[in-house]
Design a protein around this nucleic acid. Structure first.
Lengths: 172, 172, 172, 172
DNA sequence: CATGAATGAGGTTTCATTCAT
DNA sequence: CATGAATGAAACCTCATTCAT
């Protein structure tokens, strides 16, 4: 109902709105550039983790840590992604968002399945739901996480992992 | 970058945009009315659950189920809340959002603390993080949950609870 | 920049705006009816005064008193006339406003000329300017005159006349 | 019933209506800027006249001449003031209009009282009424005065002053 | 007659974008 | 490269008017 304007962007860059157009074709281009770069970097990291070939549980842990790392280092990009991805999806220019989402899904679902198969994760796990659960849980943290705040991203990742892996119930 | 316009709203109501103003003062009023009604209903439900005086674990379960119920029954209201709450918070008219958020926080944190105290939840639980984790996890589900879809809201609530309570790891 | 709306009018009539249209064709009709009635009455009074055939000074006095009487008795009509006459003039429906203005002018200028001719008014009087002066002076009083206030319309008329006729200077 | 639109203003500036907002925040701002500048200038002139410390009659003459000068040089500003001041008064942004009106009143009433005291004006003068009379008389002339017309503003001022000071009656 | 929901034209304002300087 | 005035489409909103009930 009050979104970021081109003037807002120019203001925080310390220039006037018209001047932005020497650097970008359009507002869309800015978002495009930010999201594409962010996703390249994120998926690069993901790929390295998966390619390392660790067991499912370790891989999942590292994926979660990498994701919180992205929230820390690429905070604005993640925020933009969270706010805009849905709307942008219908724009052909951003078709890659859908592709990335599919890739993302396959990657995480793959890890979860592997974990169920190798006995690290519960055999009755609804992998589909668990995937969405973890995905949302991790990314939505961008809403309250502030880089440079009290808890480091990795501390939070650990706490999240302990909940996701073991739950909040006291052990028996 | 492309938000809902007054015309969009009027269109789905089958009237012209100007006609909306016979029923509402402004676009803001529409959002206000929707959010206020939704929050009243939601907190009414929460209060009944808390007042029932069940143990912390049961209370938490019921709160999570009530929340998924709200996503099911008040889908658009939840979606609007998710998309707009942050921006609206700076508007005096929507001060009640902040108050509700505080109330919400106290209620859930209270339940979590009670659970830690009575031994149902892990003694080392970071209650603050766990609260944010559960809160976000539950509400962000509005992004993909479709009322009338394959899985009922309560089924999803159960699955979410099983993850939050026990984690995804296989028991040893 | 914020003029009287049809709803305002209906409100002060204690009905809803749609209901006004059972009584009037349009907003224009309302104004038309008010102004036409007011001008008929005013000019009726003027004519009676002129037809009485008194000398110029007496006639002028009576015209001024009649005008203040109209401000008192037909306050809203005068106010509407003051606020709207200029804009309405370009509307064919209100051509009578122009005619009335001409009639008005002839009548007052006639009296002034008669007074100059018969020696009651100064021979060097710029009749044109004096006419505008008196006309505006009298009617613009509607802006601050409140019927039922401290001074009666006739008291004010007397005071105005004493200024117009004799000026504010102390006699020598 | 048909007031000046932002488009009208933009048209006479030879730009499109949206372009006005590069220079002003709102329609209100335009009016604000015009009126504030006009009143500053007008009161600056008034103050210089009063500070010159001439006798009451001379001061009054100069005030009237300065006012007609303003109608001549700041014709649109005066017209806007006449048309809008009343409505705007209820808007906190325009509180200064009320203050200026009070200042205006004190200044003119002061001069009139001085004149009565020093014997230049009639001892029986109703200063309150005379003030309103002169104020309205002078400013309402904006309705018919056209800069660059036949009579100069100063000529009209002289004629007005001769009426206000000495009246229209022939001397005895 | 009165109501009140609805219309539609037109008003004010916003904002991404262009372009001469 | 940066500026800032200008554009034009589209957003929110107002209001005189119509009309089924």
């Amino acid at each position: 109902m009050k979104s970021t304007t081109v003037r807002d962007i120019a203001d925080s860059a310390g220039i006037l709105s018209g001047s932005l157009y020497h650097h970008f074709d359009s507002k869309e281009s800015i978002v495009d550039e930010i999201l594409a770069a962010f996703l390249d970097e994120l998926f690069g990291g993901y790929r390295r983790i998966v390619d390392a070939g660790e067991d499912a549980r370790t891989t999942l842990e590292q994926l979660v840590r990498a994701s919180f790392g992205a929230i820390d280092l690429r905070h604005s990009a993640v925020a933009i992604y969270q706010d805009e991805a849905k709307h942008l999806a219908s724009n052909p220019r951003f078709d890659y968002l859908g592709e990335r989402a599919r890739e993302f899904r396959e990657l995480w679902i793959g890890v979860l399945r592997r974990g169920v198969a190798d006995g690290s994760f519960r055999p009755d796990l609804d992998v589909e739901i668990a995937f969405r659960f973890i995905r949302d849980t991790v990314w939505v943290a961008v809403r309250w996480y502030r880089p440079g705040g009290q808890r480091s991203a990795d501390t939070i990742a650990s706490e999240y992992l302990s909940i996701v892996l073991n739950g909040i119930s006291a052990g028996t």
